[in-house]
Design a protein around this nucleic acid. Structure first.
Lengths: 334, 334
DNA sequence: TTGAAAGCGCTAACAC
DNA sequence: GTGTTAGCGCTTTCAA
């Protein structure tokens, strides 16, 4: 049989409520009594049972993590690392993280179980998720934090990447290396982050008095994978646009660009330099290795948990946004 | 306020116990009563609360997923996909999956919380995990299923890859293509699966009357990454061992071999053919793309959940092992 | 076949 | 400061 709070109370010679008080640090317990209780807990290897506690406090002790399924089914390391970060941080807040994926077009019957069963105290949403699910959560008054995505409207709490500063760093770096003819390759302009990266490119180029006309911006692709990068670079090259450096909106695009350049016997970085964004595995397995912007993925997950648990506890207000800095990592491609 | 079973009972005009009976399909409820209850549930959007249920049934409704931290901190897609498979399957069994990672050298204070708090009804362990943690789980009589790992002793339930058959397929395929001089590159011989792959190589070679002496087996590396593959291939090439095909124990090793061959101006597959194992992203992003053995990762996760829930329910016996077939996927490298 | 009632282990009023 | 006690929402005897 399991050891319960009653047995601890008996062992320590106090009432169950006293044990509960020391367990929850709700003060007003004498030092001596506390010591006795703590000893009894230690001796009996007691651990409070979550379901019993949850029943009365109406807190599950769980956080939900919702991810759009196509992000995760590709097992994108980007999101895997964010998730990992939440898991790790959640331990120190004594939360469990329940992960679930959700389809792009979100049907009612697809509502995550933990929402239906009210089995979470708060929710983290990573990447682009359907607007409907965010509304659903908001309607129910469930605290939530978004990661790397902010819907067009509504004032949500979020952990965001400093995209503008990242691209600024990349462009400045290239300019310092003597490059003047840059081309930006972006993807999925539906994602606000992608748009920020593109806009930052234009702005930074303008600040340096360099041209960033339409011919130097490839950002039509709906996807943002290696194939799209390859295609975009190919087009730039065959169109004979003068280019000495590519600024890619992420590492996958950059690796595609890399391949296209290699196929055209362009030496990297001598003939063409390339920068990526995100710093996922691709960036270091690529040949040459990729100069890119390091995004602290685990840390973003951790920040989300920390913010969410503060919102739940009422020590932070819903609507708080945290902008995470990125850092240029110089490798062989520039 | 939340909808409770009481309100459903009132709405349906029956007792709470009756509602509970239809909820748990414990029979003996008239069709008419059942219909009324179901209607009330539907109307009120009732969902039983897990903690209340768990308190009395002594089941948490959770499954634990334990992964050695170095597998996951690399965000290895292999394990990510397995985890994803468990998550997906768990839904249909109405379980939640709690993920945790654990260090190689497992200290007592590192025991997963869900074990301490008895917050899981069963545990899945993926990849190589410390023997101590497996014992700990067994001692507590907690049902568990291992994935892709079977400790030297003890009769555990497990989902295993048919490594021997996989390597046999690869070797046979190469022989059919006319290759006679094969070299096997393995890693981490501590892992039983890796040893199986190596042994299968020797056996299959012998069956075809081909040499598989020590010079044709590189399996000392403790790690099994691209760097180790690169080093092993380099040594083979510089030692002037006659080789027309490499059989790698996984895709990472294979991609390292690929690079080494390219660096030495060996054409693939004309001069040298290469096969991998696992079929992770690497296999399709590599140039040329990699012929490899497809391991159904998501399916393995699903199988683990299915087996585990059967063991919990008592409809499968602990100690059951499931051997998952693999399939050769031919790409450009052979 | 259905209902009444006793807990599951815990927290939180409220007494003392 | 500490103890008594009433539930939290559910399942499960046990009677009817």
């Amino acid at each position: 049989m399991n050891v319960t709070i009653r047995e601890v109370a008996r062992e320590a010679g106090v009432a169950v409520s006293t044990v509960s008080l020391v367990l929850n640090r709700k003060g007003r317990v004498s030092r001596e009594t506390e010591r006795k209780v703590l000893e009894a807990i230690e001796k009996l290897h007691y651990h409070p049972q979550r379901s019993a506690r949850g029943l009365v406090t109406r807190h599950s002790g769980n956080l939900g993590f919702i991810l759009s399924s196509d992000h995760f089914s590709n097992a994108e390391p980007f999101y895997t690392k964010i998730f990992l970060g939440t898991e790790f941080e959640a331990r120190s807040h004594d939360y469990y993280v329940l992960l679930t994926t959700i389809g792009e077009q979100f049907q009612e019957k697809e509502i995550p179980r933990f929402l239906l069963e009210k089995n979470v105290d708060g929710v983290i949403l990573a990447g682009t998720v359907p607007a409907r699910i965010i509304e659903y959560i908001k309607e129910r008054g469930l605290p939530c934090v978004l990661i790397d995505y902010l819907p067009p409207s509504g004032n949500y709490s979020a952990i965001l990447i400093d995209n503008a500063d990242g691209i600024r760093q990349a462009v400045t770096h290239l300019i310092e290396k003597g490059h003047r003819d840059l081309v930006f390759v972006g993807g999925d302009s539906q994602h606000p982050g992608m748009r920020e990266r593109r806009d930052a490119f234009c702005r930074t180029m303008a600040e340096h008095g360099l041209a960033a006309d339409a011919g130097r911006i490839c950002a039509e692709a709906l996807l943002s994978g290696a194939q799209e990068g390859f295609d975009a670079a190919l087009q730039v090259i065959t169109n004979k646009v003068k280019v000495t450096a590519f600024v890619a909106a992420n590492d996958a695009l950059a690796s595609g660009i890399l391949r296209a350049c290699r196929d055209h016997k362009l030496r990297i970085p001598e003939d063409v330099a390339i920068t990526g964004f995100d710093d996922v595995e691709t960036a270091i397995t690529a040949r040459p290795t990729l100069t890119t912007l390091h995004v602290p993925k685990e840390e973003m997950g951790a920040l989300a948990v920390r913010l969410l648990s503060q919102i739940i506890a009422g020590t932070a207000s819903a609507g708080t946004k945290i902008l995470v800095p990125v850092r240029l990592v110089c490798r062989e491609s520039t």
